[in-house]
Design a protein around this nucleic acid. Structure first.
Length: 637
RNA sequence: GCCACUGUAGCUCAGCUCGGUAGAGCGGCUGAUUCGUAAUCAGCAGGUCGAGGGUUCAAGUCCCUCCAGUGGCUCCA
């Protein structure tokens, strides 16, 4: 009890800690300047409060808000403060759990539905609590004391029952509020000066179906108001480049109440889709894909064969004709299977790569729709590769190369996720194991880092998902590669091998950009609507200075058009300033002003999006620059 | 689908608290201006106030139901 313990610090020094001394005391003595940023610490790798008193020697590392663990502690402490204020505002409200998240934190309550007024009083109470600088005090208690403290809250009593006997039960006291919690916490509420409530909503506890409704309050915590303001500013900037707003302003796409979740592609948006398709079909040609087109709907029996009827029906649009049930296809695979099966196949035809850009329909619950990133009808850069076992690896390696090229073109950062067998799966475990091992091996041999997600696979196959990050830092799933041993067998697909025997092919389902809809939405936010020149609906606008220059402008626009550029021309009724402004707002990558100076000098005044001012160049140079940027699919003009 | 909020002109929004049959800016059209790199001036047109029902002498405004959108939950390309 009186023995001195020794702490090893990050710089390698070892310091004695007097009996009863806290890690906070020691850190303050070790680094008086930095100590004001220390909000907690780790002791032998375990997160602890600054008030922690170690019992034996160990290594001590301070935590600040810059550390993920430190950031999580601020979020978690913020959640406690929200709970304190909400319980005071609504007597009888039962706190359940309040963890940190990637974004911030939430706290779930067993309480009547919340109102904006509730949040107002929560905000007011929290403001007072932060000003009062209440300490977070840790209480370690015996089981019966714990049950007494949590009396009346069956959720907390349940959590206590789940804590292993070997672990101490701890509570934290903040003012009058005492909450079951493992900790650690910030020392006091002044650390939560930048606490902000983001919103509230009803959620279903414990997953999908059976859970009881709880009310969730979401927020984000920062140690200072300045950090909160920087965060809010970033959010506002992200909001300003919301793809739904851009889609409307740039006349790319729209929606109507009478077809919720079904996009209307306007002419400008359609140019982008066609260019994206061209980008992908060029790769198809290079890599030996062939395009097919199959029906948008099939009789129920096809989906019974594919397994969709059993596993995916609640996500399908159904209809009826001739007294038979039909379903709109939610995926392209059944059509590709039926084309493969349309005649006898030889091993010499494999790999058979069948691509299909067909509209897919999925019934998504109304509350999940979100602009172009979550729709009910979409087209994917989809293909199905029918291969032999021996060909799988080479095909996967080839696909990973295309992924690199595709996403580099759009200057995205992306990551891989390996999703394994879900709870409900088709087929036998041995084949699943083999498919999962194969995907894992190819990822590893390609030197790719990935996150493994057990249980997240499709019902018919394990998959590699590709995630890109948008301007809000939100990850979006775009592409997916699925290795399928099930569906070919269910459709009875066969090919004759070199050995003269019939074999079942393996199918690789793959879409890389994902749907045009979602990819385009993410790309708009990524670029703030400043699409690369090759994707821009209008690539170059010619601005005649005055009406006497209109004929020359029309002739120039025509020459640019014949050079393969999408050029248009402004009128001259508006001021030049205004027309330049409109060109900028429309995100058109190039503008050329044509006036007396240019016509007499035989030059053009070229204005390039993202660059200051304009430059006088020959028409040939201007055209060459633009044509090359488009041809190379350059990201910037 | 669940919870909360929102829905007024093509777009962004005011009017709703305290009921007395609609207003601005941008955009559009017309005219004037012919201009040197992010908003020239004037005039005009444009709205069954998301839909349906109710209360009232009277409803954009109050109440109910539905639809859609937004933010979450869940799910996913």
């Amino acid at each position: 009890m009186t023995a001195e313990v020794t702490a090893t610090l990050p710089d390698g020094t070892r310091r004695p800690l007097p009996p009863g001394g806290t890690v906070g005391d020691l850190l303050r003595a070790w680094n008086p300047q930095g100590a004001s940023h220390y909000l907690a610490a780790t002791w032998d790798g375990r997160s602890v409060d600054l008030s922690f008193v170690p019992a034996r020697d160990g290594t001590l590392v301070p935590l600040t808000f810059q550390d993920r663990a430190g950031r999580d502690i601020v979020q978690h402490s913020s959640a406690h403060l929200v709970a304190k204020a909400l319980v005071e505002a609504i007597p009888g409200a039962l706190p359940t759990a309040g963890p940190p998240t990637d974004e911030g934190f939430y706290y779930d309550f067993d309480v009547r539905p919340l109102t904006p007024d509730d949040l107002e009083s929560v905000r007011a109470t929290m403001g007072q609590d932060i000003a009062s600088n209440l300490p977070f005090e840790r209480l370690e208690v015996a089981r019966d004391e714990a049950n007494r403290l949590a009396a009346g809250n069956r959720h907390k009593l349940g959590y206590i029952a789940e804590i292993p006997e070997s672990e101490t039960v701890s509570f934290y006291r903040t003012g009058s509020f005492v909450d079951l919690c493992k900790g650690p916490h910030v020392p006091s509420t002044k650390w939560l000066a930048g606490l902000h409530i983001l919103g509230f909503s009803a959620i279903t506890a414990g997953g999908v179906r059976e859970g009881e409704p709880l009310q969730r309050v979401r927020g984000v915590g920062f140690p200072t108001k300045a950090e909160l303001e920087a965060y809010l500013k970033l959010r506002a900037e992200a909001e300003a480049r919301d793809h739904r707003t851009l889609g409307q302003k740039l006349e790319l796409f729209s929606f109507t109440d009478d077809a919720p979740g079904f996009p209307f592609w306007h002419p400008n948006g359609m140019v982008v889709v066609r260019e994206l398709e061209r980008f992908v079909t060029e790769h198809f040609a290079d890599d030996g894909y062939r395009e097919i087109r199959t029906p948008l709907m099939f009789a129920k029996s096809v989906f019974e064969t594919s397994g969709h009827w059993e596993h995916y029906r609640e996500n399908m649009f159904l209809t009826e004709a001739d007294g038979r049930e039909f379903g709109w296809k939610p995926m392209n695979c059944p059509g590709a299977m039926l084309i493969f099966r349309s005649r006898a196949r030889s091993y010499r035809e494999l790999p058979l790569r069948l691509a299909e850009f067909a509209p897919l329909h999925r019934f998504e619950p109304s509350g999940t729709l979100h602009g172009m990133t979550r729709v009910r009808e979409f087209v994917q850069d989809d293909a199905h590769l029918f291969v032999t076992e021996e060909q799988i690896e080479e095909e996967l390696v080839r696909l990973l190369k295309w992924i690199d090229r595709a996403f580099t073109t759009f200057r995205f950062t992306w990551s891989y996720e390996l999703s394994k067998r879900p709870a409900q799966f088709l087929g036998d475990s041995a084949k699943w194991d083999r498919a999962e091992e194969m995907l894992e091996r190819v990822l590893k041999s390609s030197g790719i880092e990935y996150r493994a997600s057990p249980g997240e696979g499709a019902f018919y196959a394990p998959k590699i998902d590709i995630h890109v990050r948008d301007s809000l830092g939100r990850p979006w799933q775009t592409g997916t590669i699925q290795l399928d041993y099930q569906m070919p067998a269910r459709f009875g697909l066969e090919y004759q091998g070199a050995d003269g025997h019939l074999h079942t092919p393996v199918v690789i389902h793959r879409t890389i950009l994902g749907s045009w809809e979602r990819f385009f939405g993410v790309l708009l936010e990524h670029t703030n609507g400043r699409l690369p020149p090759w994707l821009s609906p209008v690539q170059i606008r010619v601005l005649p200075l005055a009406d006497r220059h209109e004929a020359a402008a029309a002739a120039l626009a025509d020459r640019l058009h014949r050079a393969g550029l999408r050029a248009d021309q402004s009128g001259s009724a508006e001021s030049l300033s205004k027309r330049v402004r409109e060109t900028e707002i429309s995100r058109i990558p190039y503008a050329i002003v044509l006036g007396d100076q240019e016509i007499s000098a035989g030059t053009v005044a070229l204005r390039v999006r993202g660059e200051k001012g304009q430059k006088s160049v020959s028409e040939a140079d201007a055209q060459h620059r633009m044509v090359e940027a488009v041809r190379r699919r350059a990201f910037d003009p």
